[in-house]
Design a protein around this nucleic acid. Structure first.
Lengths: 349, 349
DNA sequence: CTGAAAGCGCTTACAG
DNA sequence: CTGAAAGCGCTTACAG
């Protein structure tokens, strides 16, 4: 369909169109686009208005060919789940290709995270993205702060004030889930805590406790077991919970891996899910819909969070380059409670 | 570190360097790079030699700015596992961004795959990538053939001669796994077949049977149960296998989801894995290392396969554009048997 | 604070 | 079959 070779790109606007519309030179438009500071405010506004009116988008190929300063972002991760990582990468990679940003992906052990962060920072990246659990690692955060390089913490429960962040409201999400369980009629609700090295774990527990409190249910310490986000730790916690003299009628695990493990343990003990035991998870990872019954869980928009992390970081890098003062926005994305087959009312009696 | 603004890119070679080295004009170099046919063979060779000697790589930004014909590749998928898809996308996206190729990703239901394929093809993509199970769907393959558009089938067991393909040798991989089981001492080995709509399923079964034959073990039809790659179907198949009067001492499932389900069923029946039952899977999906015990399985290099699919397709598109006759290479990538904790010798007695 | 000129590395369109 | 010219849309470097 496309004409074989119109020299001109298909009617796309150029910086010249914007310049003419705004009554300035292309050079000035370029300055505004790149956030350079030496532009009079009124001029800047006129150009921005023109950009908006025309819905102009700079051509990335031209920018990089002309030698625009390339933005390089580092992504440092230490074995999160493969599913989490893949979704995170898909979002990040996609946003980077749109925005003409180079993404350097680095893996590290949790024990060597500090050294890895230092290495990445020294390699000259302009900013760094930290998905969990590294977003909560104090040494990594310190190394980042010392390097004076911008960073974004993703899915941390307690974002530091001097670092940008993207997360969901774990407190609210967990509260909503527990409210849901209470609505189904559950009163003895077991909770499997997340790894203590992730601040979101505490938020989830607090949300759970808050919902209990609202409903006038006194929290029973025996019903909150420590987990570490792994399947194995979920099995251990579930075993302890179900061996209780008065076992819970529902178990809320802080992630899907532990919820899946809880289902396995229940089955091993001859319990049907959800008839004899309700089990709910958190994350909506692939596992949630793989096992049977499929898990009721909380979905985090991981790819979107990753996209926003890239955008936030790129904005900060650009404003720094143009000498503006850094902002450290903390963005909240929407979670969703997804109801599937693993929950139901408590067994009568 | 980088000098703030050297106008010149850091010493990167240009088409002019190659032209000078080869003693031709830049235009001729451009023709060779783009595989245009109207270049004398001796000239082409000289240019190619120069490119090799200098290790020249064209600047993608310049190419697309100058209006090089953009390659657009469509990727059509219908609910494979999220883990498979993510890894597949990561590889494909990465290769596309390197090669300056636009990737259009489209999801469809398996029932509407034909219409979706037609739509994608009509939208003007230059080629199409088909991961499983679509790589085996006859209607989709027919639609593709009728459109005269190049395609690549990924992970199909029986690639059509007129379509490029990337796969692992499923027959050999399954044979190696069953040999491994036999080597551990197993003689009664259950097999859970993959979905019959994927040709790789048959290859895996045949590989399994071949290994049995080599070892002089007569195949027992009762030991091969039909599965459909889902966790649920794996549970059903495992139940039947373990309810046999003389149950198997090992079960080889055609993917990890079904192997995980087999472990769950075994546990439900009070069987320890691997002490009482060996269970092995196929794919090395995230699930394989999530559950406990972790699964011994066959790893497919999914991201690499996706990368190669993009490369193969781009090559074919370029040679078509320059009027060359199409090749349809069938590439084989290496699989790996990954041994973890779910296998062991059969229980004595 | 703003602009005219030159150039990034390649391809298209036109000549020969 | 090969090449000289012009231009893709932007930025750098230099003037004012």
């Amino acid at each position: 369909m496309q004409s074989k070779s119109a020299r001109r790109q298909k009617g796309s606007l150029t910086i010249h169109d914007v310049a003419r519309y705004a009554g300035v030179s292309p050079m000035t438009v370029s300055r505004v686009i790149n956030g350079e500071k030496n532009v009079r405010d009124s001029t800047r506004e006129a150009v921005n208005a023109a950009i908006r009116d025309l819905n102009y988008q700079p051509n990335p190929a031209a920018r990089s060919l002309a030698g625009a300063d390339l933005i390089r972002i580092g992504l440092l991760y230490s074995n999160p789940s493969a599913a989490y990582l893949s979704e995170f990468l898909v979002g990040g990679l996609d946003q980077c290709s749109r925005s003409n940003i180079q993404l350097i992906v680095e893996k590290c052990d949790e024990e060597h995270a500090e050294a890895a962060a230092a290495r990445l920072l020294n390699s000259g990246v302009d900013g760094i993205i930290l998905p969990p659990p590294l977003c909560d690692a104090p040494e990594v955060l310190r190394t980042l702060a010392e390097s004076k390089t911008p960073g974004v913490a993703v899915a941390t429960g307690r974002p530091p004030a001097d670092v940008s962040a993207v997360r969901i409201d774990d407190f609210e999400a967990a509260r909503e889930m527990t409210r849901h369980l209470i609505g189904l009629g559950h009163r003895r609700i077991g909770f499997i805590k997340g790894h203590p090295n992730q601040t979101a774990s505490a938020q989830r527990l607090e949300g759970h406790l808050a919902a209990l409190g609202e409903a006038g249910i006194a929290p029973d310490p025996a019903l909150a077991e420590q987990g570490y986000f792994t399947y194995r730790s979920g099995m251990d916690a579930a075993e302890r919970l179900l061996a209780l003299p008065q076992p819970p009628t529902a178990i809320f695990a802080s992630n899907d891996d532990m919820a899946a493990a809880t289902v396995a343990v229940a089955h091993r003990r001859g319990l049907d899910v959800p008839r004899d035991l309700t089990v709910v998870g958190y994350d909506d990872s692939a596992l949630a819909t793989t096992i049977w019954p499929e898990l009721t869980t909380i979905r985090q928009p991981i790819a979107d969070m990753s996209r926003e992390a890239v955008t936030l970081l790129a904005d900060e890098i650009r404003s720094r380059r143009s000498g503006e003062k850094a902002q450290h926005p903390h963005a909240l994305q929407a979670y969703t409670l997804i109801r599937r087959q693993s929950d139901g009312p408590p067994r009568a009696g």
